[in-house]
Amino acid sequence: MLSWLIKRLLMLVPVFLAVSVVIFSILHFIPGDPIDNLLKIGSSPEARAEMEARYGLDRPLPVQYLIWLSNVLQGDLGTAIVARRPVADLIAQALPHSLRLGGLALLFSTVVGVTLGVVAALSRDRWPDRAIMGGVLVGSTMPSFWLGLILILIFSVGLGWFPVSGARGWQSLVLPVLTIGLGGTALVARITRVSMIEAAGRDFVTLLHAKGLSPLRIQLRHVLRHALIPVVTILALRIGWILGGAVTVEVVFARPGLGTLLIKSLSQHDYPVVQACLLMLAMAVMLGTLMGDILQALMDPRVRAAMT
């Protein structure tokens, strides 16, 4: 297990390098020069050159990349050009908000999604199944920012239960978590249902029935265990998808976080901040996939056996 884990971690290194090259180079294609925002109108070319030198923008791109990468690896994400503060500070401020939101949304969609999926699979083709799958379809087709605004309209404006925006107290988390979570719930419920139905057709289930175990016990103790493996795999692969949902939802609810920071710095052409945000999201995606692999190994003896 340990040697597998080390190998798996080492495999992340080339992926990380590839991602970092992409993130670094993409942003240099973005039109709009952040230096223009800093210089007073009518500044001399010398002032401009001095400003470029201060941020290292006058050196060739590969050199800029290597300097950037070595700084990043030392935890120095550079200085925000527009906000004029260390990027690491901005990220450190935003990250906990996004992690809390994303984590709770993930938890919500797993718990609710698996429950709905199990109920739908157990009542296959009867009305609870149809109602759940119908709701899941509708839930997954609503744009998340729209759903967020409608929830605000109903629960904040209409009923006054939760605040409209901001990030103060747990009440402000309920609607954003619900908004992101509903999309994820739909995905989890659909996969759980399909893999429950698939697992229920396996030979070992027939055997358990023949042994005379109660059908509900078979479903919940044996079939569900089997069915959860693909759920974990897909959930881990789609962690980035939940974070992507966080980006839009943070903007709708005017919450601090990586998403709001990313959108703001994209519009201000603040390269270092955008790079750092993307890097954080990419790392979250990679760690998510890694965690999915580990969980899968812990849950599935066949995978564990193949690892050693």
């Binding site: 980035g240 992507g244 949902g245 990419a282 995606v285 990679m286």
Partner: peptide, 10 residues
């Protein structure tokens, strides 16, 4: 592994 919305935004 990147959500479509992020790719599109950039």
């Amino acid at each position: 592994s990147f959500p479509e919305i992020l790719i599109a935004l950039i």
